[in-house]
Design a protein around this nucleic acid. Structure first.
Length: 415
DNA sequence: TCTGGGGTCCTAGGACCC
DNA sequence: TCTGGGGTCCTAGGACCC
């Protein structure tokens, strides 16, 4: 088996870099990209200037501002970042069609069949790094290795703007002194359990016998950790065009203020809003699901989830909401609620149920009109009055009337 | 006014069927 | 007058990633 050549590209402080590129006033300044500013949110990305003050990803905004009061807070825009990264992925495709977008800011490319043509993996890493800077204007780190695990590790070794190649023959030496949490797959849980036994480096982990790992973590996870410690990873680069369809779709929302258990109506409104978002995404993908999960996180951050599998597939937000309310009734709410979530799984693509029934035909047409208006005029243009705060109702009603006036005749009739 | 939001995968136990 | 064994589905929870 010839050595594979896998390249991993990781954008540096991606969200913050995109915002700095868009606004010259932010360049060279500490920038914090966070979620919705009106909720309890955390830092999604801090620019390197902010990191110098000790700000880290996942910090609450007040905590981050305490570290770096002069930082500029920017509300993140995931769609914009996804668009920017798709352009990066296109640059990667110049070197091989086998590009796997792994997350919103990183991707793998399998160069095994093409590297020779371009002078080898390291030459491609240098060229790609230059391409991204030249054409996208954003910094990135690039790693090359004999598999995805090592390529990803390599790209993390020099940040920002680093290029690192780890050849198969040097994997053991490179891993020897690295902390176990440097490996993708060793999270907080494994780290704590292994550290408790005095195992802190990959070299130490590689000396632990397989039976002990299997006894500690179970057969599957034990074997997985055993392979990670040796830098072994046979998983293929799965080109994004072959990526399996999503298995679940859901939304969570941490509430601006905790809700007391008696405030069921307010919880219902939140679940309805989340369900409508989920429904819209399902319909956009031509998907429907029959397993519904409602998540509740309490004031003390303990979390419960309850699932129900239904007889029919759902993609209508209101029906999802009704089912989620029934699940909520079964949950013991012993303390104030901090977060609510709705997720639909058991997805089927292209399933069409009872579409010949007149009431279903009308319901589908209504949903299509609803989607048409929100796609045309923006998310939330048309929404249920029960989702609106009182002062907002007038404004939304005006927007809704404007939207209906612009909708096609058949949609107007249904509205 | 510490601690987001989007996912996937695995395990384990129980129900149920053949 | 006994309780196997395989398989699937469902549910809850926890690990991991970004």
């Amino acid at each position: 088996m010839p050595e594979r050549i896998i390249l991993h590209l990781d954008m540096n402080a991606f969200f913050a870099s995109v915002e700095q590129r868009a606004d010259p006033r932010l360049r060279g300044q500490p920038v914090l990209v966070c979620g919705n500013r009106h909720t309890r949110t955390v830092v999604a990305t801090a620019s390197y200037e902010a990191r110098a003050f000790g700000v880290t990803t996942g910090m609450s905004v007040p905590e981050a501002l305490a570290c770096c009061p002069q930082a500029t807070l920017v509300e993140g825009n995931p769609g914009k970042y996804a668009d920017a990264f798709r352009r990066v992925a296109c640059l990667m495709e110049r070197y091989s069609p086998d590009v796997e977008i792994f997350s919103i800011d990183e991707a793998f490319v399998d160069l095994s069949a093409t590297a020779e043509r371009f002078g080898g993996g390291l030459a491609i890493a240098n060229a790609l790094h230059h391409d991204v800077q030249q054409h996208i204007g954003l910094p990135c780190s690039v790693g090359v290795g004999p598999n995805k695990l090592i390529a990803k590790l390599a790209s993390s070794l020099k940040k920002p703007n680093g290029i690192t190649e780890v050849r198969a023959r040097t994997v053991t030496a490179v891993l020897a002194t690295l902390p176990i949490e440097a490996l993708c797959g060793i999270g907080r849980g494994f780290q704590a359990a292994l550290n408790a036994h005095g195992i802190t480096t990959c070299g130490e982990l590689a000396r632990v016998p397989l039976p002990w790992l299997m006894q500690q973590f179970g057969a599957c996870a034990g074997r997985h950790v055993f392979r990670l410690a040796r830098g072994q990873d046979a998983s293929p680069v799965v080109p994004t065009r072959h990526a399996p369809a999503a298995k679940s779709m859901g939304h969570l929302q941490t509430l601006a203020h905790d809700l007391a258990p008696r405030r069921k109506a307010a919880m219902h409104a939140v679940l309805l809003g989340l369900s409508e978002k989920v429904g819209r995404r399902l319909r956009a993908e031509g998907a429907a699901g029959r397993t519904l999960t409602v998540t509740v996180r309490f004031k003390d951050v303990t979390t419960l989830a309850r699932s129900r599998t239904l007889a029919t597939f759902l993609d209508d937000g209101y029906e999802i909401a009704q089912a989620s309310w029934r699940i909520l009734e079964t949950l013991p709410l012993a303390q104030p609620v901090r977060l609510l979530g709705v997720s639909v799984s058991g997805l089927s693509y292209g399933a069409r149920q009872h579409w010949w029934l007149p009431e279903v035909v009308q319901q589908r047409a209504l949903l299509e009109a609803h989607d048409w208006i929100n796609n045309r005029f923006g998310e939330g243009t048309l929404q249920r009055a029960s989702l609106l705060e009182e002062p907002e109702v007038d404004r939304h009603y005006q927007l809704k009337r404007a939207a209906i006036a612009a909708a096609p005749a058949e949609a107007q009739h249904l509205c």
